[in-house]
Amino acid sequence: MSIQHFRVALIPFFAAFCLPVFAHPETLVKVKDAEDQLGARVGYIELDLNSGKILESFRPEERFPMMSTFKVLLCGAVLSRVDAGQEQLGRRIHYSQNDLVEYSPVTEKHLTDGMTVRELCSAAITMSDNTAANLLLTTIGGPKELTAFLHNMGDHVTRLDRWEPELNEAIPNDERDTTMPAAMATTLRKLLTGELLTLASRQQLIDWMEADKVAGPLLRSALPAGWFIADKSGAGERGSRGIIAALGPDGKPSRIVVIYTTGSQATMDERNRQIAEIGASLIKHW
């Protein structure tokens, strides 16, 4: 067993022997301040990774656009098919120029040779490549099948209805392509620590998230040296922004954090800054 596999296998073990965790309302004060600064709703939840206990939450059962955070769930569904012998990570998928959609920095470079399922998941999570996500959605049967996968996990809230990039439209009061912070946090925890996926697939999923290259201005910008984070960000229309993450000190994750916002007129930089400040408060009061 590799060191990384050992780390993920012992996530519940280490967490069980940690000192009790206590909620700190100071972080919620910052979440509410972010709402004021952005002029928009902000949803927040913080779960203990081992027990699933909610440590703090704000608007945990209000719907927010998922945006690209759905790509972690998508690759979880792909990995479940791999575990069941219905898919192979090494299978190569070929596609054409007509398949390319807006923001496809990886797939646009491989029109000639195609990409493997493993490479597509890596591109979808680490670079948020939209064509990679659409190609992977095709392998599982489309958005409705991802929703069905989530329902089978016990998540009857999260739903995907459309493809990239239309799913980022974020129309107010439109339930399409949305989740709730509580539902997303619980589902992410199941994917990373539950028995739904094999140990190898859980490790692969967290490795992809740990290698995320496009979430630097968010929670990662607030992390002290030595902290662990595996995350996936999302951005959408109407001032929408979000991030889902597993993080913790001492090089291992111990909490799940989900943050979503929508309806702001603020710039992307300002949305990023507010999420980073929430992260800084979380870490300060850990």
Rank of each mutant, 00 (worst) to 15 (best):
M1T: 02
S2T: 13
Q4R: 13
Q4G: 08
F6C: 10
R7L: 07
V8T: 15
V8L: 14
V8K: 15
L10C: 10
L10Q: 06
L10K: 05
L10E: 04
L10R: 05
F13R: 02
F13K: 04
F14W: 07
A15V: 14
A15T: 15
A16C: 14
A16S: 15
F17C: 09
C18P: 05
C18L: 06
L19Y: 15
P20V: 03
P20L: 03
V21R: 06
V21I: 07
V21A: 15
V21N: 06
V21P: 05
F22W: 14
A23D: 05
P25W: 10
E26L: 14
E26I: 14
T27H: 05
L28K: 09
V29Y: 04
K30L: 12
V31D: 01
K32H: 12
D33K: 14
A34N: 03
A34L: 08
D36L: 15
D36A: 15
Q37I: 12
L38Y: 09
L38D: 06
A40W: 06
V42F: 14
G43S: 06
L47A: 08
L47T: 09
L47C: 09
L47G: 03
L49G: 05
N50V: 11
K53Y: 13
K53I: 14
L55H: 08
L55A: 06
E56N: 11
E56F: 04
F58V: 08
R59A: 06
P60E: 14
P60V: 12
E61T: 13
E61H: 15
E62T: 11
E62F: 07
E62A: 09
R63Q: 09
F64A: 01
P65G: 03
P65I: 03
P65K: 04
M66Y: 04
F70I: 06
F70L: 05
V72I: 09
L73R: 00
L73Y: 06
L74H: 01
L74N: 02
L79V: 06
R81V: 06
Q86H: 13
Q86E: 12
E87P: 02
E87D: 10
E87I: 11
Q88W: 12
Q88N: 13
Q88Y: 13
L89W: 06
G90W: 11
R91W: 04
R91L: 05
R91I: 04
R91E: 06
R92K: 12
H94K: 14
Y95P: 04
Q97K: 14
L100C: 06
L100F: 09
V101F: 08
E102M: 12
E102Q: 15
E102R: 11
Y103N: 06
S104F: 02
P105C: 04
V106D: 07
V106W: 07
V106T: 07
E108C: 07
E108Y: 08
H110Y: 11
D113K: 12
G114A: 05
G114S: 05
M115D: 01
M115Y: 03
M115S: 04
M115C: 07
M115V: 07
V117F: 04
R118E: 15
R118F: 13
C121K: 00
C121W: 00
C121L: 05
S122H: 12
S122V: 12
A123M: 03
A124F: 00
A124L: 04
A124V: 08
I125Q: 02
T126C: 11
M127R: 09
M127N: 08
M127G: 06
D129T: 00
T131M: 05
T131V: 05
A132E: 00
A132K: 00
N134S: 04
L135E: 06
L135H: 04
L136E: 01
L137G: 04
L137N: 04
T138M: 13
T138V: 15
T138E: 15
T139S: 12
I140N: 04
P143A: 07
P143C: 06
K144N: 14
E145Y: 10
E145D: 11
E145A: 14
E145F: 10
L146K: 00
L146G: 03
L146I: 08
A148Y: 13
A148R: 15
L150T: 09
H151Y: 14
M153I: 13
M153S: 14
G154I: 02
D155Q: 02
D155I: 01
H156A: 15
R159N: 07
R159H: 12
L160W: 02
D161F: 03
R162S: 09
R162T: 08
R162F: 03
W163L: 11
E164R: 01
E166W: 15
L167P: 04
L167K: 02
L167Y: 02
L167E: 03
A170K: 06
I171Y: 14
I171Q: 15
I171V: 15
N173Y: 12
D177M: 01
D177P: 01
T178F: 02
T179F: 00
T179P: 00
T179A: 03
M180C: 14
M180T: 15
M180V: 14
M180K: 14
M180F: 11
A182S: 13
A183P: 07
A183Q: 12
M184G: 02
T187K: 01
T187Y: 03
L188S: 06
L188D: 00
R189K: 14
R189E: 09
L191G: 02
L192D: 01
T193N: 15
G194E: 12
G194Q: 12
E195D: 13
E195A: 06
E195N: 15
L196T: 15
L196H: 15
T198N: 13
T198I: 06
T198C: 10
T198A: 11
L199S: 11
L199E: 15
A200C: 13
A200I: 11
A200K: 13
S201C: 07
S201G: 10
S201T: 08
R202L: 05
Q204Y: 09
L205T: 03
L205Q: 02
L205D: 00
I206T: 13
I206H: 08
M209V: 01
A211G: 13
K213Y: 09
K213Q: 14
V214T: 09
V214I: 07
V214D: 02
G216T: 10
P217G: 09
P217H: 10
P217K: 14
L219T: 03
R220G: 04
R220I: 03
S221W: 09
S221K: 13
A222H: 10
A222V: 13
L223H: 03
L223Q: 05
L223V: 13
A225V: 14
G226M: 07
W227T: 02
F228S: 07
I229K: 02
A230G: 12
D231T: 04
K232C: 01
S233C: 02
G234C: 06
G236T: 05
G236C: 03
E237G: 15
G239R: 02
G239F: 02
G239H: 04
S240F: 03
S240I: 01
S240A: 13
R241S: 06
R241E: 03
I243C: 08
I244N: 02
A246D: 03
L247Q: 02
G248T: 01
D250A: 13
P253S: 09
P253E: 06
P253D: 07
S254A: 15
S254W: 09
R255F: 02
I256Y: 03
V257K: 00
V257C: 07
V257R: 00
I259N: 01
Y260D: 00
Y260L: 11
T261S: 10
T262R: 08
T262Q: 02
T262V: 08
G263V: 04
G263T: 05
Q265C: 10
A266Y: 08
T267V: 09
M268Y: 08
M268E: 06
D269A: 14
D269M: 11
D269S: 13
D269N: 12
N272Q: 05
R273Y: 12
Q274G: 09
I275A: 02
E277Y: 08
E277G: 10
E277V: 11
E277H: 08
I278W: 02
A280M: 15
S281Q: 13
L282I: 12
L282S: 06
I283C: 09
K284Y: 14
H285S: 10
W286Q: 03
